[in-house]
């Protein structure tokens, strides 16, 4: 009996490890492959026989990308768009999430549902109306316009996530703060937000990554080098008669750097934030 049980447990362990290793491979392999490609000479990339590990290494792709293709401008544009999006969400979403979490007002449920419904439409559906609106208000082909477009579909996510963190902060704390002499907003800034800090950080990182990586809206709403973001810029490097694999790979590697750095900095706070409220205490 005991032997069978331990054998079936072993079998389960083996199966779960195989599945996990398989999934990890699927997730990591493309990144490793991109990294290796970015270090290869152009003539080593397209070869008759597959070369997994490059026999010689070069940083030429990175240098060429940075100096000749206007990639720095793309990265800076992306940074501006991402920062603006996060700031917009932070300014409007925090107050909205707090109101949803704490007040019972008419139409509250409908409004929250509305926020969710916006997320249910495919992005493609919103692009054409957004394009027309942006053209009419003169925000087409601008980083601010793009940031506003991102906010329109990231804000609902931001508000819903943050509402969860605000819900987890005990209401008695605000009562105490209000008796101690703060206004409602004062209680939110001085007491609730410091408690929900990790959650706020996690939500911001989430929004930042989504804005940083976004491609479709950026492709439609920007037309010039002056406001293009890096995903669009990379895509436009693919020409009719050339496919600069090495530079594309280098661009990919550079663009995931900020995400990795961001994660490294806030990882602890983010994990704490995402699991907050999961365990009481």
């Amino acid at each position: 009996m005991a032997a069978t049980r331990s054998r079936s447990k072993l079998l389960w362990d083996v199966i779960s490890y195989v599945v996990l290793v398989g999934l990890a491979f699927i997730a990591i392999a493309p990144i490793v492959w991109t990294f290796l490609t970015s270090l290869k000479f152009e003539e080593d990339i397209v070869t008759r026989t597959m070369q997994y590990i490059p026999s010689r290494i070069t940083f030429e792709n990175y240098v060429k990308l940075w100096n000749q293709s206007g990639y720095p401008v793309l990265v800076i544009n992306s940074l501006i768009v991402t920062t603006t999006t996060v700031l917009l969400c932070l300014l409007t979403g925090t107050v909205a999430a707090y109101a949803f979490s704490r007040f019972q007002f008419k139409g509250r449920t409908q409004l929250m549902l509305g926020y969710l419904v916006v997320r249910m439409f495919p992005a493609v559906l919103m692009i054409i109306p957004l394009f027309i609106i942006m053209r009419q208000v003169g925000l087409l082909d601008s980083t601010i316009g793009l940031a506003i477009a991102y906010t329109s579909f990231l804000l609902p996510l931001f508000v819903w996530m943050l509402k969860g963190f605000f819900d987890a902060a005990p209401k008695e704390l605000e009562s105490a703060a209000r008796i101690d002499g703060t206004t409602r907003l004062g209680a939110m800034f001085m007491v609730v937000i410091p408690i929900a800090r990790n959650g706020l950080l996690a939500t911001c990182v989430f929004v930042a990554i989504a804005a940083w990586n976004e491609f479709l809206f950026a492709l439609m709403l920007t037309t010039s080098q002056g406001s293009r973001t890096w995903p669009v810029g990379l895509q436009l490097m693919v020409g009719e008669f050339q496919l600069p694999w090495g530079m594309l790979a280098a661009g990919g590697m550079i663009s995931i750097l900020p995400v990795i750095v961001l994660f490294a900095i806030v990882q602890r706070a983010m994990v704490a934030g995402l699991t907050a409220g999961a365990v009481k205490g």
Binding site: L173, A176, A177, R178, D180, I195
Partner: peptide, 27 residues
């Protein structure tokens, strides 16, 4: 509430978790 000049002790104590005791009392 802030203008009623009252003080309240809550069942859960409602101490501000991010502040040290000194600032909690002096808040």
């Amino acid at each position: 509430p802030k203008d009623r000049n009252i003080a309240m002790v809550f069942q859960s104590y409602a101490l501000y978790p991010t502040m040290p005791v000194r600032r909690n009392i002096g808040f």
